[in-house]
Design a protein around this nucleic acid. Structure first.
Lengths: 339, 339
DNA sequence: CTGTTAGCGCATTCAC
DNA sequence: GTGAATGCGCTAACAG
């Protein structure tokens, strides 16, 4: 079979004995604007379809300076939280005829930098970024390139750009208060990287709830940092130690820590709710099917993404040069039986 | 602040009083091939870096006819199975300097068609496709456009292309046999769409195991099809009905059905293992933390993706015009306590 | 060894 | 109303 050449505008122009310019105008829906005869327009459109014409977006992009691509930079697309986010971004982007290209940073600023650079090279029209620890420099340089981007899930302190996040403080405050109300006496908090904006806020909510309570012990001593890559190696020990030190409840700052800990509690032989109380950020399926179900704070991922794309497209189209907004959306407290 | 213009090859050429061609050669790493003086090359590279040059991949792509993008078409990126797949594809693609663009078909052939068309329009160099029901036509047309693609997870009967799948038959056979060995007497099977290649094979493995067993009842009557969008509306009724009809065990053809059913069993008040036995395809986190843990068949997602990208890049580079392969990888039977 | 030139496919400005 | 011409940024073929 013939390797069938792709149909270009010239091909349909030749077939109709008209010029490429004409074809281009018609196919970009500008026939009316340029007062091209309806019959002409119809003919062009018809033969375009007949020949199976499909515009070359690379060429169009080169000419117009817009690739029609949005870059999505998450920590790890295989994490259900970011997977859901990807899906929502995809849906919202599709409405505006954008395609989504993604990349996982693994919470590593070098990887993030590489991704940002390649995305920039590929001329993405904008990026949705989950900033990682220590990424201020690369983000500032992105700002200088004047490529539009918005933060989601977290923001970067030194980089003044739009951001859409859940109300981390309030969510954690609610979760922790619940634990206190249920009568737990010493509550440990576990987080990956205490330097991230969202984690800081979560820890703050947790801390405040405790300080406002009658409970009186050195809260700071029971905040544990377990790095992303230390989950397999250090988490178990940390949990054991905390329990040995009298902790009867745990606050997990994200789904990964929560899920991993569930496995260890089972292994160690600690019974959830009876031996220890548990609350966690995020609402992965694992929290819904395990028994007892895990009380948690669900993030409004769909809303967050909707907002994020709104802000981003506003920037891309260069409308209104407003001051960067930091939108904080309320989370959804889901009470189950883990405390 | 100045809207800082992007640096092009001309800019660095001008600055050095050399030609663009020269710059292009050096920057594409062909300085040695064209025997360009080391000092010249060094100067070019240096000022490129100094000026912050970043190649415009749109232009390069237009010229070379290669976009450097791979399209990934899954059913739903927010499904943890496909999320993991996306991550593996991302990693493998990165090794070959490809970027990944994704799209979710929602198991809908029309959506798949739209995605394929836009991806084709964006000049992706190849696609990794999870084909959906009734997508033969569009896939054949993709073949005619001679855009390389490979199937993963499933294949499409009428479309002769490379495919990488898990050994669905064997996996299901093992899962079902286990149920039989444990003494369950009547095993229901639940699947989304019995028309998909992978599901067909899974049902076949299930059926064969039963037929080879001493159990003697009309197996076909206990194979239930619950469509993707009917999970919320019909699944509960189907489960109840099956249980009422004497089923004491369930075989789930994928993670979504398994997870959703877990919730309903809890709601209905059926106790897993005591009242009913359960096995399922896939190994999402939910199966690991729920109690009892769910016996399941884990797919070798990383290996599958590695193979898929290998096959795809082979096609893209147009090496060896071999006959399409259908690679079947063994799954990993994980025995937990659900049966 | 390096410069010049001609497109890749499309959008857009200017003629007629 | 439509055709012709120009160039987006880059690569590659050809000169010299």
């Amino acid at each position: 079979m013939m390797p069938k050449k792709r149909i270009r505008q010239v091909d349909i122009a030749d077939k109709l004995n008209v010029s490429v310019g004409l074809v281009s105008l018609v196919l970009s829906g500008k026939s009316h604007e340029f007062r091209i005869s309806d019959e002409m327009a119809a003919k062009v459109i018809e033969t375009a379809k007949a020949l199976g014409y499909r515009p070359n977006q690379l060429a169009r992009g080169l000419r117009t300076g817009k690739s029609g691509i949005i870059g999505l930079l998450v920590a790890d697309i295989s994490n259900p939280f970011f997977g859901k986010m990807a899906r929502c971004i995809e849906n919202e982007a599709a409405k505006l005829e954008y395609q989504v290209m993604f990349g996982s940073s693994d919470e590593n600023s070098e990887k993030l930098e590489n991704l940002i650079n390649t995305f920039s090279s590929r001329q993405v029209d904008g990026m949705i970024i989950v900033p990682v620890f220590d990424s201020e420099r690369i983000l500032l340089s992105l700002q200088e390139q004047s490529i539009p981007f918005v933060f989601v899930d977290r923001y970067c302190e030194g980089v003044d750009e739009d951001a859409v996040v859940v109300d981390n403080y309030l969510g954690s405050y609610e979760l922790t208060s619940l634990l206190i109300k249920k009568g737990y006496r010493k509550i440990a908090a576990l987080a990956h990287n205490l330097g991230l904006s969202n984690i800081k806020e979560r820890i703050q909510g947790y801390t405040t709830a405790l300080k406002e309570s009658p409970l009186d012990y050195p809260v700071e001593e029971f905040i544990f940092e377990v790095d992303f890559d230390q989950v397999d190696t250090r988490l178990e020990a940390v949990l054991k130690r905390a329990h040995k030190d009298g902790c009867d409840a745990f606050f997990f700052a994200n789904n990964k820590l929560g899920i991993s800990s569930l496995k260890y509690f089972d292994k160690i032989g600690l019974s959830i709710k009876d031996d220890i109380g548990i609350v966690s950020f995020d609402n992965p399926e694992a929290f819904q099917v395990t028994k007892p179900g895990i009380t948690c704070l669900e993030q409004p991922i769909d809303l967050m993404c909707e907002k994020a794309i709104q802000l981003l497209s506003r920037k891309i189209e260069g409308r209104v040069k407003t001051k960067p907004e930091r939108i904080s959306l309320p989370g959804n407290l889901i009470i189950r039986e883990s405390c």
